[in-house]
């Protein structure tokens, strides 16, 4: 009986955690789709988002939810810089990434990732920090849920829904989707590819950094410069599971991973890396059976 309750609450926690994973993966998915680049430094932008929330808390006493607009604004700015610094030269005037450009962006984002980790270690030390914020618990039968996690899950789902509305109901959003599906066709209907690619990348970074801020609720002492190494792989698995370019795929993939990792740790003895390995294992059959992701 106690075990069943434990399982249930791990399941529920997994769902809540999965919502945050979904946001982080959603950012990656957008960048991948619109900029055609696999951002190897993805995890480091999650880390920056988390530190953003940490310092806003340290200096101004903001809780992680309050830091969202600030992280989003920083993320948008960073995204624009990233686009013009790393991608514009490689993407300009091309229908798609060629092998050469793909290699260039892989190597340069890999370099960026190392630079960011090392700079963060210099500036903020390699030690773990965390945000003391615990708004209490809510109890559903045998399951006790942290309110912080619940709020963050609601915000996460709202962010994904909001970006869905932006991408499907506005001219600019539709142009970004058009760009990610066919660049020359997008140009032919009058879309300026530099605008869609840079704004799409910026929104992707904004969402990624906000995801980093939201994640801190689950990391009482888990903010540190190399934390990206734990969460970037999860994002990649989610994007592949949910299907690259599919917005709701991020949510479904995120929930799946949240549950697998949380319940996995129950059986694998609280070991995040081991649970992650399990997540990668389930990816293999999915890739074999449905290379386009679990959603139709």
């Amino acid at each position: 009986m106690a075990d069943a309750a434990l399982f249930l609450s791990d399941l529920a926690l997994g769902v809540l955690l999965g919502c945050v994973f979904a946001v982080i993966a959603h950012g990656l998915n957008l960048i991948w789709g619109v900029a055609k680049v696999v951002n190897v430094a993805h995890g480091e932008f999650i880390m920056l988002g988390a530190y953003g929330a940490y310092f806003l808390n340290l200096w101004f006493g903001f809780n992680p939810l309050l830091s969202i607009p600030f992280d989003a604004a920083i993320g948008l700015g960073v995204g624009v810089l990233f686009y013009f610094g790393f991608l514009h030269r490689e993407l300009r005037g091309k229908e798609s990434m060629d092998l050469q450009s793909e290699m260039v962006t892989l190597v340069s984002t890999f370099g960026l990732s190392l630079v960011l980790i090392n700079t963060a270690q210099k500036l903020w030390t390699p030690d773990n920090v965390g945000i003391p914020w615990s708004p209490g618990y809510v109890v559903f039968g045998p399951v006790q849920l942290p309110l912080g996690g619940l709020y963050v899950a609601i915000v996460s789902v709202s962010i994904i829904a909001l970006s869905h509305v932006f991408l499907s109901k506005t001219y600019l959003g539709n142009a970004i989707r058009a760009h990610s599906q066919d660049i020359p066709a997008a140009q032919l209907v009058g879309i300026n590819p530099t605008i869609t690619a840079s704004i799409g990348t910026a929104v992707g970074f904004g969402i990624t950094m906000v995801g980093g801020a939201l994640l801190t609720v689950w990391l009482p002492t888990g903010i540190f410069p190399a934390m990206g190494n734990l969460y970037a792989p999860i994002s990649f698995v989610i994007v592949v599971l949910g299907g690259p370019g599919k917005m709701w795929g991020s949510l479904v993939g995120g929930l799946t991973l949240g549950v697998i990792i949380n319940v996995g740790q129950l059986f694998l003895g609280n070991n995040l890396s081991l649970a992650e390995a399990a997540a990668f294992l389930i990816l293999i059959p999915v890739l074999l059976l449905r290379p386009e992701g679990i959603l139709r």
Partner: peptide, 21 residues
């Protein structure tokens, strides 16, 4: 070269993306 993942109407509406249209 249609946008394969978009609906017919979304494709058509994107055709009018230019400000003049």
């Amino acid at each position: 070269r249609l946008f394969p993942q978009l609906t017919v109407e979304a494709n058509l509406r994107l055709g009018a993306y230019a400000k003049r249209a």
